[in-house]
Design a protein around this nucleic acid. Sequence first.
DNA 1: CCTGATCCTGACTATTTGGTCAAGAATTGG
DNA 2: CCAATTCTTGACCAAATAGTCAGGATCAGG
Lengths: 206, 206
Amino acid sequence: MMDEAKDSGLTRIQRRNREIILEGALTVFAVNGFRGTTIDQIAAECGLSKPNVLYYFPSKDEIHKTLLTKLLDMWLAPLENIEPEGEALQEVLDYVAAKLRMSREYPRESRLFAYEILRGAPHLTEILGGRLRNTVDDAVAVLRGWTEAGKLRNVDPHHLIFSIWSMTQHYADFEVQVRAVLGEGHDPFSEAEIFLEDMYRRLLTP
Amino acid sequence: MMDEAKDSGLTRIQRRNREIILEGALTVFAVNGFRGTTIDQIAAECGLSKPNVLYYFPSKDEIHKTLLTKLLDMWLAPLENIEPEGEALQEVLDYVAAKLRMSREYPRESRLFAYEILRGAPHLTEILGGRLRNTVDDAVAVLRGWTEAGKLRNVDPHHLIFSIWSMTQHYADFEVQVRAVLGEGHDPFSEAEIFLEDMYRRLLTP
DNA sequence: CCTGATCCTGACTATTTGGTCAAGAATTGG
DNA sequence: CCAATTCTTGACCAAATAGTCAGGATCAGG
């Protein structure tokens, strides 16, 4: 077997089963967290035997790390897609909307990261201070540029980003609470969309 | 031994040791979550033996539940302290500030709740739909009143509350991330205080 | 259809962990 | 100062859990 790039050295079956395992593991980790998840649960979730799961991944740790790094791109993409040449306010509003949409469509990913950060991010330490920080720094620079050009009201760009993260992810991570408080007959996400658009428009319009 | 109210039926030693255990358990649960915490860790944290911990509480579950219910009052107090007769905007700003201060001073409590909600809140189900929801409903009514009286700009009161919760608790729950992104030389909480005051003032001023 | 490689699993081990218990140590009240 | 009560713990148990392994099933290429 040759050892080309990334996935190329893998059998069809390997590719498929690794995918199945990551998919199932994501579901279980998102509900129970790392420590609360057992390999048996993952195996059951994907309809494989436990030894079979461990045939494709050497350990529970490895499954978890693989998931986190694999999903980080997706999670950071909207921030990287901010277009410095775009219309400032609209770019931010688009980012907020994109982030909220991700919380709605990928709540498992949101929870996976939430659990990991809560634990102190043992599997993400380098990334937090490295790639993530760089990405944020870039975005911060763009925001500052817009502010200096008078296109945005002057607010602390770091905390602006934190606010967007926390508010959008809240609807995925704390969904139980949100639903309990709202009761029946609410669509948290579409209400949030309206609220957030209004909020950031008001906050950032010069 | 007679069985009067709450704590009264307890020895001095019982009161003291239960307190020590809850204190130590809070520290450990806040870092590792429920499933990630072992009774041994709790025992070590408080300098007691494991059987001794289990002499004062029948199970790990019970320690956790006791902590959650005990701390819920504290956690909800600021929301209950909103004064309908007060000056609307200032009341909300005070609430935000109080909530942020709690994140700074009681990060363990914040994380304890965050972990619990993330898990789906098995130890808080009744409370979420009961007491919490009522408290929020009351606050929502007050906010609506202020809005109708023209004292606050018209925003969805539920989502206003969610936004305050998520943004303030973010600084406790996701502290690792916040610090990694900001780097050295920042005081996240005092920066957040400025940002949040500005944000909510702007959002809510009619 | 044959053979070597890949895939899969039942049975197993070692460790961790929640919880028990009997017996000794300390404390309390009379 | 004595006895009853309360407190503490070493030793233990049963269940859960991460991970192993030998051998059988399946598959891909020739």
